[in-house]
Amino acid sequence: MAGASKAVADNRANLPFVYRQYSAEQLRNVLHKMYLIRRFEEGAEESYTRGLIHGTMHLSIGQEASAMGICMPLAEDDQITSTHRGHGHCIAKGAEVKRMFAEFFGKTTGYCKGRGGSMHIADVGKGNLGANGIVGGGIPIAVGAALSAKMMKTGKVVVSFFGDGANNEGAFHEALNMAAVWKLPVIFVCENNGYGMSTSTARSTAIKNIAERAAAYSMPGVIVNGNIFSEVAEASYKAVECARAGEGPTLIESKTYRHRGHSKSDRNRYRSKEEIEDWMSNRDPITLFENELREFGFIDDKGIEAIRDAVAREIADGIEFAKASPSPDVCDTGNYVYTEQA
């Protein structure tokens, strides 16, 4: 890839922010992780269909650039709270897919030892404080984590991911207000995929752009195309800098789309095939990023192929790991309700 590196060196000054800010290796790693999220979701979906995963799940296929862009400027010890559609956030924050698969398969090697499943996937070691089954439930918790960071002077910032549906929950409004009043190091990220389950934002939300709600809480409100990695990452970078400098919170609205239904019960009766097809064919975040990387000389077809192969192996290995892992003992159902004390 010597040729690619030279092109990078020649052209960077005129490229979008992320191509100036991050190394070619870092950017190729972003593509790797976007593929990892996509293939993880597909692997989970297939495992569900084959009866290896029970319950339900909410897939983030189509939202990969949003998860990766927001997490790009975060340090390992920065923290996030996530949502029911949280697999991508978990991977973007550094989780291993094999332990995520193990969790979905209900195994003891999973991140939550099989107690949480898809909807509570977490990786506390990497700063993911957990997905949440309650719409808006993680938002005040993120503000609390940011309060800890401020009181303990750790320099950490906290990102709270939530969907468009959460912007009509009281918790959203109470949490944004408190974060602004106390100038806490937190970034609110609304991944607006157009629908809260089946109800469109047009039918559920009195304003056109959720970012406009930021004005009510005296914080910057930023709208980004959530399917363009460089746009998301740039907005996140600025918000993180602002938070770390003690200037308080930002609300980022990342406009995106989920290719799949809300959950496994969705018959997609509230949106047209044409609409879905348009987003999949013309605005796929991975295709868009891949094209930019190729165009700007950060990667070539061979490099892309290598990433796809590596991801396929990682997914296959992860599923095998999950299958081979032990299930929890039924005698241990009482574990972790309370802290075990000596």
Partner: peptide
């Protein structure tokens, strides 16, 4: 002093406790 926000305030306390404080 918190705003009159019981849900949010309780959530902030939970989040702070989760991340090392003792509210």
């Amino acid at each position: 002093d918190t705003p009159i926000s019981e849900l949010g305030g309780a959530g902030v306390a939970v989040g702070a406790a989760l991340t090392g404080m003792r509210p």
